[in-house]
Design a protein around this nucleic acid. Structure first.
Lengths: 206, 206
DNA sequence: TTAGAATTGTTAAAAATTTAACAACAAATT
DNA sequence: AATTTGTTGTTAAATTTTTAACAATTCTAA
């Protein structure tokens, strides 16, 4: 199950969350068009994605939600979960920590880093904040594999080097300054202003 | 200039920011491969995007950065800018406000809303926070056209209705619960956990 | 002054992603 | 029992997005 299209991977994550919500409501089965409505995509796309991961529903009864959730978990989670660090304990860093707090997910934020003494040596939503100097030490100790960079943009590039050298395998860069690729590190960029400007453009032109 | 591909629109926003950085460094011209390096995409893609917006560079001299910035502005900005509201003054809402603070952009966050008395009737980075009850009133007064929803997910759907009824044309939904489409409102969803899970998947499988 | 190198603009090809079409079949209805 | 309806799984078509290829042109240097 290692050749899924990028877009399918993104949707699997979304399917799982919606499906978990449905489970919580006591639903046990769901049709492709119901999933599609939840995420406002098309039913075909849902069926196709589900086909790609090799799951089969029951005709006229739909998909067993629990089974599907489990299978998606097998595909996108690792067995023991993955440990994550947040670098930069600003609003955005806190937002991430808060987001994952108490969520049933295999992804676990196990450390935060900052340089501001007001933030260091305290916990926020059970995540302890260390001084940036301890980056390498804590990454090794906690076997952290993924880092979320939420510092000011000037710091990002040097940090990415340190993270790579410390053995991280994935970086999610939330600063507006794009990073260059580093061998052996999967890099995902996200820029909040781009999203906003995209909305602004389509508001203007549609 | 109203039929640009989605992906091109996203990149234009990124080009502009990088180009402004270069301007600030005193550079006046830039080659397609330089832009490409800054954003780690290919030079062809840069040239193609620039072709699509109808700009021409000078052979062997590259693109005039200021001209290009101006043109991108004409395309993705509106003449008088667009007013934006942040709904939900949590970490994420604050992160957005902070992000846009003092940036030279036509997008302006002119109001924030919350229900928490600790947050209401105060300013954060020059953005005043109102009680949610005043939503319609302030949207009308400030002619706000775009809303960023950063509340807890339970509140999102009802809010989207109120925003639509109040005349908003674009919604950026940052809560993990996808909204359904509303006639006449451009909707962009973004989910932080999806980004993370995507990174986790590719870390696992590559 | 000619040859070589660098760079744009654009058409065409390739790759990725989405959508359509429909056969297969289970359940519900007549 | 036959017909209709609803739903999946999948192949094929369509669309969108990216990449390749290269002619045209300008600059540099021999």
């Amino acid at each position: 199950m290692n050749n899924l299209p990028d877009k399918t991977v993104e949707r699997l994550s979304q399917y799982r969350r919606s499906l978990n919500n449905q489970l919580a409501k006591g639903k046990t089965h769901i049709f492709s068009h119901e999933i599609a409505n939840l995420l406002h995509i098309t039913p075909v796309q849902v069926r196709r994605d589900i086909m790609l991961i090799g799951y089969s529903g029951t005709l006229r009864k739909g998909y067993d939600i629990q089974d599907l959730v489990n299978l998606i978990g097998q595909i996108i989670d690792t067995d023991n979960g993955q440990n994550i660090a947040v670098i930069g304990m600003g609003n955005l860093g806190k937002a991430f920590i808060h987001y994952l707090y108490e969520k049933r997910t295999k992804l676990k934020i196990v450390a935060a880093f900052d340089v501001n003494p007001d933030k260091i040596n305290k916990s926020y939503a059970d995540v302890y904040c260390y001084h940036m100097d301890q980056l390498e030490e804590i990454i090794a100790k906690e076997s952290i594999k993924i880092g979320i960079i939420t510092t000011p943009p000037e710091a990002a590039s040097e940090l990415a080097d340190r993270l790579r050298d410390a053995g991280l395998k994935g970086i999610l860069n939330y600063t507006p300054k794009p990073l260059s690729e580093r061998e052996g590190v999967y890099l995902e960029e996200y820029d909040m202003i781009t999203s906003l400007e995209k909305v602004a453009y389509f508001v203007k032109n549609k």
